[in-house]
Design a binder for these strands. Sequence first.
DNA 1: CTGAAAGCGCTTACAG
DNA 2: CTGAAAGCGCTTACAG
Lengths: 345, 345
Amino acid sequence: MLENGLKRITSIKEIAKLAGYSIATVSYTLNDKGRIRAEVRQKILDICQKHGYMPNSAGRNLRRKRNETIGLMFYPSSAAIFRNVYYAQIMEALEFELEHAGYDLLLSGHDSSLEHSVSPRFLRQGKVDGIILLGRFPRKRVIALKDYGVPIIQLDGFREFLNVDYVTSDGYSATEQIVDHLVKLEHRRIVFVAYNHEDTNANQREAGFLAAVGKHNLSNSECRNIRDIGNSVEAYELIKYLLESESPPTAIIAVNDTLAVELVQLLQDDGYSVPADVSVFGYNDDADSQKSNPQISTVRIDKTKLAQIGAKMIIDRIENSEITHQKASLLAELIHRDSVAVAKS
Amino acid sequence: MLENGLKRITSIKEIAKLAGYSIATVSYTLNDKGRIRAEVRQKILDICQKHGYMPNSAGRNLRRKRNETIGLMFYPSSAAIFRNVYYAQIMEALEFELEHAGYDLLLSGHDSSLEHSVSPRFLRQGKVDGIILLGRFPRKRVIALKDYGVPIIQLDGFREFLNVDYVTSDGYSATEQIVDHLVKLEHRRIVFVAYNHEDTNANQREAGFLAAVGKHNLSNSECRNIRDIGNSVEAYELIKYLLESESPPTAIIAVNDTLAVELVQLLQDDGYSVPADVSVFGYNDDADSQKSNPQISTVRIDKTKLAQIGAKMIIDRIENSEITHQKASLLAELIHRDSVAVAKS
DNA sequence: CTGAAAGCGCTTACAG
DNA sequence: CTGAAAGCGCTTACAG
């Protein structure tokens, strides 16, 4: 029941009957199409309003062959995403953009990391017009998903040569900038640390690191790229070994702020001082990099922009499948805070 | 194109033609209804499989008058939720339950705190069968939402006398337990602190506090319930004033772990020792309560169970609107850690 | 400017 | 055990 005690009307047919016009006229009015007399239009609108009429999306979607819905998938799983502060801002902006463009966002509780996992329900049921892949989806999964024929894009992750649109951040140039900056502060023994899982963003950052090491003629044996650690404790064990060696590193570049924050904690627990003994750089400008003591120097990725571009990409792809392959790599900005200082001599 | 080079089939009609049976038979097969000969059944299933057929949800939903979709709304806004660790686990469990029950989860980017906000798109478009309200929705908003006629429930929030199902945690008894415990540790001057915004969960906790103060014959003038602070700094200013008074509180109960953690930080920055000078209790068992130093004693709310019950409630309500009003209040468990000690004498 | 009608893909009572 | 047919609520070319 509505406020005015009237029964809620759920179909265009009833509205048409009440107004004394055809369902076509009602439909045109509701969609601002065709040329309906202003007077008729107003009458119909009034009736809809009065009876709390809401168009039925199943009816419209069946006819239009659209869902006005975009599916969101996470890798490795949605559990991982919700716990990850990095994604909060992205989700937020994504929702905003999509809602304004007339799309709803459908979530998948699907665990994409399971080897034999079937595809998410919403895909099997054809409930979405497009899919946004958030995270470091493996190539194989992207291909499998692409084969459904539903438009997909990758957000904050990418796979080349798949003709799948993507938007990510330019970790290569970001790392070059970090090394440039560290070298200016007289660092010559720098370590890059990332997790052992496959991650194209981490690869880019590593590649930028290696290129910068070459560019500045830093010693290959003194600059390490550690890529086989499973967690911060493992990372710290290796770093500790290096710190106790004859030519200890003076700076550490951690693949993200979470790792950076944890390393700083472990270093401090062990009696090292940051940045006096060793400088630490992170990536992402997550909230915890600022809460850490000292505050961590990091790379700011404009997450809102990332989401905006992603939203635009998937919508473009849905509404115009002819457009050519799109990819974007956002330039990142260095944020200088207190975890970096001139190299210990 | 599928792997086998065949065109993907998108309707039951084409499958029927290929199989040489009617669409009714295909439909019955797909839905495991009616009595279809095993042989025919297998043939149809094979064809579907081969051509990657997926049923069209708009068609089915139009016919069934269902959406198989549940909308999720947040208060004050989705932005607030994504940044709130407390909700990560709830979202996760909710998704899991709903997906298994055959429902998809539709997200709303809607900002419910805006006074003149329209309802979310998915509601206006009739895209959801039910709505889960997460957070402390004001009574007025709950009523407005309820008037759409779509089943709703409140999760981790509640409004009485509205006949809206809800599941929340029993903050009343939790706080009683906290005070019982503190009294056992010889605390007699205890402060309860909560934010100034309207929040029925906070009200419950406060009520439990007041009841326990009465039960233990604690001094009303020495036990305060502070409910008018906007943030932790404001809270700390008041607490500091009390700590410097003649009969300073020996224990603080903060309405959630976030506030507790921030208060501990501010106390320490100011030279107070926790728990030597003052004990601190939180609620929720959020991740940060464990990361804090000292680790914060808190109240564990089984968020997974909260979500499970919530999922079951909304589904019950959707599938059987006749059921009577349901409400649940989860018993919480005290988690004893290092922020609480015997009262300073 | 307005209406009659087809059809989107599905489910389901009914008939056989 | 299987099929013909109605109808869910909508949009849209077409006719007038």
